[in-house]
């Protein structure tokens, strides 16, 4: 069997426990993770490490994950990286708003393990 380099996922999440949860889940499924708690750093890290997917918390303390996504999508080099939004906004119209903001995928908190992994697989196999 061919040894493939594991796929990299950049997690942008300010809550430590959720960060650990996402990391452990991804790790259990053989993904490598990069982590940051700040939206602004996410762009630098994306540029430096070229992740295969970005898991973006929408409610970040300083800049909104939606803004970070817009910046990522307006950057020619980075716009190709799929962004999956994770949010506790479970209000009507939120999903639409998030997709309009340029996020390719959407997961609402609390996540279920199955749908979480399914969504990740859909983008990077």
């Amino acid at each position: 069997m061919l040894q493939v380099m594991s796929k990299k996922v950049l997690i942008v999440e300010d809550n430590e426990l959720n960060m650990k949860l996402f990391h452990d889940l991804l790790e259990a499924h053989g993904y490598e993770t990069l982590q940051t708690r700040e939206g602004l750093k996410a762009i630098d890290m994306a540029r430096e490490h070229r992740p295969d997917l970005i898991l973006m918390d929408i409610q970040l303390p300083e800049v909104s994950g939606l803004d970070v996504t817009k910046w990522l999508k307006s950057d020619e080099d980075l716009s190709g990286i799929p962004v999956v939004a994770v949010t506790a906004f479970a209000m009507k119209g939120d999903e639409e708003r998030i997709r309009d903001g340029g996020c390719e995928g959407y997961l609402s908190k609390p996540i279920t393990v199955t749908s979480f992994i399914e969504t990740i697989r859909k983008f990077i196999g």
Binding site: N15, L17, N18, L25, A88, P110, T112, V113
Partner: peptide, 23 residues
């Protein structure tokens, strides 16, 4: 209610992870 969802994500997520015997 909104704030409560954040820790719940960890509770449900980690217990789900255990339920599925991921490790």
């Amino acid at each position: 209610s909104h704030e409560l969802r954040t820790p719940l994500n960890a509770i449900i997520g980690f217990s789900d992870l255990m339920k599925q015997r991921l490790f």
